[in-house]
Design a protein around this nucleic acid. Structure first.
Lengths: 138, 138
DNA sequence: ATTGACCTTACAGTTACTGGAATCATTAAC
DNA sequence: GTTAATGATTCCAGTAACTGTAAGGTCAAT
């Protein structure tokens, strides 16, 4: 299969697949004309990667998970550990976003949103005192 | 004030403040020795930026908000519009993260997490069929 | 005169791609 | 047989918002 075929089948852009080769996540063979040739195993890997990335795992997590996937004597504890760390990060991000959301919603509700210049959003951002909630993490 | 002082007072790293000057968010004067000199107005801007960034606004949003802040004849509707778009993006991100979280939690609960190789997490990532939920957005 | 804290610039690296240009290969149409 | 469309290749640059590091200048105190 050529890159267009596996792009279609995995849902990943060809550009991304070339990038994954660059960083050695997949190692397709080459034809005499220089074209990449992807085996079924390569396609399988790409589908694995697409799903893992879709679940928000970093590339390095994906590399680790792929290695575990191919190690038939792995301990499932290792996989669960990677997943657990990722879950914690997701939880932290959700919490941050919810805090931002709460603050912005409060300010937005207080703002008339008309032609007049008075604006509680800008007032809070520019105030001299500590605002009700300031977020340090994005 | 020198950069260390405003870094302290705004909570922003000096490095970040230099970067903000690079991209023209602040324009401190210079002393004869080349050191940056920050006015009270500069400090005020930096605090504004720190808060807006803390609420997850992009740098370009911050630039826009800062311009509105300094435009005493602005319409609060403009500020509310920027904020509203940002709120929608936050909501979308939260939804994505919650979907990932749900999938990963389900898989994690099914995984023994011991010395044995059997692992539902890897099985789903590597399965030939469409998994129960595949996320396209991260 | 020297130490240490603080300031300067410039360049590289981070994450995970994405866009674009220039070129080559393959295939289908005329 | 030539041409055009499609699809492949490489390479370089850009994105967001910084962060790290190196090499060096300045200042206050000892």
């Amino acid at each position: 299969m050529n890159i267009g075929d596996v792009a279609q089948l995995s849902g990943l852009p060809a550009k991304t697949i070339r990038y994954y080769e660059d960083i050695s996540l997949v190692k397709p063979k080459r034809e005499m004309n220089g074209y990449r040739v992807f085996s079924d195993a390569d396609l399988h890997k790409l589908i694995f990667l697409a799903r893992a990335r879709g679940l928000g795992f970093t590339i390095e997590d994906c590399r680790r998970l792929l290695a575990l996937y191919e190690d038939k004597s792995r301990a499932s504890a290792e996989v669960k550990s990677v997943t657990g760390k990722h879950l914690s990060e997701i939880e932290a991000k959700i919490a941050d976003l919810q805090a931002m959301h709460a603050t912005l919603t409060r300010l937005s509700e207080e703002c008339a949103g008309d032609h007049r210049p008075d604006c509680p959003i800008l007032e809070e951002l520019g105030s001299d005192e500590e605002p009700k909630s300031t977020h340090t993490v994005q």
